[in-house]
Computed example of a mutant assay.
Amino acid sequence: MNLSSRAVEAAKSMLSGEAGLKVSVEAIQELRGNLEAETRFEVNTDYWHSKVTERVPANRFPKISVSLVKLKRGQQEKLTDSSALATLQIEVINTLERADLLQSQLSDFVDAICDVLNRNSGLWSQGVFYAGGFTVEIQPVSKGGLNYVQNATITFEIHLWQD
């Protein structure tokens, strides 16, 4: 598997795993006293322009996309055949009929993703290391089709190498 695929798959596995996003979202919702019957979301590896996502048909739960946005290869690391620094992006796209509920639900997912990243610094898999640190950008609510749409982007870097 090449470095770029390894980066995206490691991040997707970390979010989808047993101690991943579902656990964090449910813990946040429970603290606020509004635990839903079942926390549902979809994690995939699509990478769309934000204008396109406004036209995506609405489903009833947030869509989380993991994508590679930049791969930087510096000097050759000793003891490895190849190494790189990957910039990954997790985008949360949500749509609801009410703007106030939309912002609240999106905040829960952003906080949960930040929690998962904070809890999982270190080695994610063979040749994939997350040292910590991320940035979050939240877009304003906009009208999209019949509902309101809002998205947030969490950007972070991971170190990749191949022996």
Rank of each mutant, 00 (worst) to 15 (best):
T45G: 10
L102C: 00
A19H: 14
Q76G: 15
V56I: 14
K78P: 12
A84H: 03
H49M: 12
F109D: 06
Y130K: 03
T39S: 10
G145I: 05
G33A: 02
S65F: 07
H49R: 08
N34M: 07
G74I: 05
K78N: 13
R60W: 10
F129H: 02
F134M: 04
K63D: 14
Q150Y: 06
L101W: 07
E18Q: 01
V25G: 09
V69E: 15
V92E: 04
A10V: 03
K22W: 05
G127S: 01
K72M: 15
N151K: 12
L88F: 03
E54I: 10
D100L: 11
E77R: 09
N120W: 07
A7Y: 03
S83H: 11
S83A: 12
V56M: 14
K63I: 11
Q126M: 10
A99H: 02
M14V: 10
A58R: 11
N44L: 03
N2S: 06
R98S: 15
M14W: 05
G132K: 12
S5C: 09
V136L: 06
N120P: 01
S125A: 15
I28N: 09
Q76P: 04
Q162G: 00
A10N: 02
G144Q: 07
Q89G: 07
M1F: 09
A19G: 11
E36K: 14
A112P: 04
K63V: 11
A131Q: 12
L146F: 13
E18A: 15
L101S: 10
F156M: 02
A152L: 00
K12Y: 05
P62T: 03
E91R: 11
T80G: 08
A11K: 07
Y47R: 13
Q150A: 02
D100G: 11
V149I: 14
D115H: 03
M1L: 13
G17K: 01
I90F: 04
L123C: 08
A99D: 14
T155K: 04
G145K: 00
I113Y: 03
K70E: 11
W48S: 03
